[in-house]
Every structure is written in structure tokens, then in C-alpha cells.
Simulated scan of single mutants.
Amino acid sequence: MAILNVYSALVVLFLTCWAAMATKENDQIIKENNCETKMGLPCVLEAFTSIFETGTISNKCCGELVSLGKVCHSGLVKRTLENPLFKNLSPATIIAKRIQTWNNCLALIDSPFLSA
């Protein structure tokens, strides 16, 4: 029984350290790339709504999102998922919506119809 308790404690310690490292890594990526200053608040809200709720993102905000860059986009979404306020959300669903939003915006920005 003592071995099981030690094993459980090690697993908890590992998971805690991994979560702390992930948070530090995301914060470092966000800071190094000045991610928090690259989008205007209205577009941040649109992007947030399209990923964490049910909403759409405008062409203008898609442009800002793509200019933000995939590394920043991913880091900001991951950091938001680490916030206890969002603990009830499914990370798999949010990551899928993050990828979908990114791909839709990228396709829209690359579309020849947008510049016509």
C-alpha cells in the first residue's frame, strides 16, 4: 500500500511540474513574440468568441489573426485553457476550434476573391 501512495505522489508531482513548465513555456513564447500587443481588442474578442464560444470572426480580424502568427495564436489559446475559469471546457474541442479558425482565416486571407 505504501508503494501505491509513493507512486501516486510521484504521478501528482510529475503532472504538477509538467503543468508549471507548460505555463512557463507559453508565457515565454507570448512574451518573446509580443503576442499580446499584435491584435486590437475588438479582434481579440472576435477570435475568442469564435474559439471559446459560438461566433464568427470578420475578414478584418482574420487578417489581424494571421498577422499575429500561428505561434502566438496557439500560445494564447493554450494559456487561456490553463486558466481555472475555463477548466470545464474540453481542451480537444477548443484546440480543434483553434485550428479551424486559423485555417479558415488563412484560407480567407489567401483567397484571390478578397483582393478583387
Rank of each mutant, 00 (worst) to 15 (best):
K70Y: 09
I30S: 03
N26V: 01
A19D: 02
A2M: 14
M39K: 12
F86T: 07
W102M: 03
N103Q: 14
Q100G: 03
A116L: 15
P84C: 06
V6K: 15
N5S: 06
N34M: 00
K97Q: 11
F14E: 03
K87F: 13
L114A: 08
V44R: 13
F48M: 05
L114I: 15
M1R: 08
V12G: 04
L68A: 00
D110K: 13
E82P: 04
G55D: 04
I109E: 08
W102H: 04
C62G: 01
T49D: 05
V6Y: 14
C43G: 03
K60E: 07
L89I: 03
T16L: 08
N5A: 12
V12P: 00
K78H: 03
T16K: 01
E53T: 14
E64C: 00
E32F: 06
D27F: 01
N83M: 04
E64R: 00
A47Y: 03
V44C: 07
Y7R: 12
K24T: 07
L114R: 15
F48A: 09
I29N: 01
V71N: 06
A107L: 05
T16P: 01
L4H: 03
Q100C: 01
K87Q: 13
L65F: 10
T16Y: 08
M21D: 04
N88R: 15
I29L: 05
A92M: 09
N88H: 10
V44N: 14
H73Q: 08
T93F: 13
C72D: 10
N33H: 12
N104H: 06
N5D: 11
K60P: 02
A22Q: 08
F14Y: 13
G63D: 02
C17I: 10
C61I: 01
N88W: 14
L15Q: 10
I3G: 09
T16Q: 07
L76E: 04
L106I: 11
A2E: 15
I95Q: 15
N59L: 03
S111R: 06
P84E: 06
L114E: 07
R79E: 14
N34F: 00
C61Q: 09
L13M: 12
Y7Q: 06
N33P: 04
P112Q: 12
E25L: 06
L76S: 07
S74C: 09
G63V: 05
L41F: 07
A22C: 05
I3Y: 12
S115E: 06
H73E: 01
S67F: 04
C61E: 10
S90I: 09
N104V: 05
S8D: 07
A92S: 14
A107M: 04
F48I: 10
